[in-house]
Write a protein that binds this DNA or RNA. Structure first.
Lengths: 168, 168
DNA sequence: GAGCTCTCCTTGAAAGTTAAACAAACGAGG
DNA sequence: CCTCGTTTGTTTAACTTTCAAGGAGAGCTC
């Protein structure tokens, strides 16, 4: 039971589209849960916090301005403030004032933070590998990359009138 | 049955795999945020709550046992308890005792709940369409479906020794 | 340099999620 | 019956995220 794309009618998804959508929702939910659980267990933090540490580790001087980090991680500055506060409490990140702009703050990865990363990264990589790459053919991996690139691009905040989740 | 992730050398991701993984994380984050925002604005609830109503609407008698609903939605029973409590407060769902099992509860979609769904479904479908299907070729859609099916299957709790997120 | 606006980031409260513990009911043996 | 282990669903507290508001510095204009 599904309607053909007639005019002015609320165009539903075709059966096949619905199938794809359900598989997508299903898989992305399971995958995120799986990785969250894995990292909570092995590293003592949720996936997104881990991602913040990774960003910092890769940044020059192991530091980033708050806004830049928020943009990279695709989260609001508010959320980042709370997150960094928690990571600071864990001793994995420290804040530093920006000399050139007194409003600014750097989030800096500490040695302890770096240590946690290098200790837990292999397990995390392995989890990603097992859940995703080991199950897909090279063609499928390539295809997935292309597809997700398109989707991401379409949701970027540079579109006219688009919303700016992480800058509001 | 462990697939021997133990004491494996930290095999990193190739550059290409890393590219794919980043696009995936990036896109799935943006998409989920986008839909959450859309539904919060138009329907007054987060994406997952909307999904619960959809499940109920499709179920025979517009009702499901709590555990079954939790499994369908891939969430824990605990989370479902909280969610249904909220939806009940909104008047969109009501609880009913199960006659055959006194421990059991049904979540039942109310008329108000059904009304919210039919009012907001077109906008949601349109958002999904715009963000995903309109941007992908038929081949890409097909490919995405196959890929996500594989990934989902790999994370299902029927694997020996796998974790059972929604049953723990 | 006074006034205005914008940007950077934080804060506190409300909403949502998680993990662990729990009571009640089932049900398979004994 | 009765005990043991399981299933069902809820609850509590800790934690994370969101939302709305705000302080404080930067920057611009007159």
């Amino acid at each position: 039971m599904n309607t053909a794309p007639t005019s002015a009618e609320p165009r539903w998804l075709t059966d096949e589209e619905q199938r794809v959508w359900r598989f997508y929702m299903h898989a992305s939910t399971l995958l995120e849960d799986h990785l969250d659980r894995q990292l909570q267990r092995d590293a003592g933090m949720p996936h997104i916090y881990y991602g913040l540490l990774v960003q910092l580790a890769e940044a020059p001087g192991r530091r980033l301005r708050m806004t830049e980090l928020a943009m990279n991680a695709k989260i609001t500055r508010s959320r980042l403030s709370h997150a960094i506060a928690r990571l600071e409490k864990n001793g994995w990140v420290r804040r530093e004032d920006c000399p050139s702009d007194k409003r600014g703050q750097f989030a800096v990865l500490t040695d302890a933070g770096h240590e946690v990363l290098s200790r837990t990264a292999p397990g995390h990589v392995s989890a990603v590998r097992q859940a995703l790459f080991e199950r897909l053919s090279p063609e499928q991996q390539k295809s997935l990359g292309e597809i997700m690139e398109i989707v991401a691009e379409g949701l970027q905040p540079n579109e006219a009138g688009a919303d700016l989740p992480w800058l509001r």
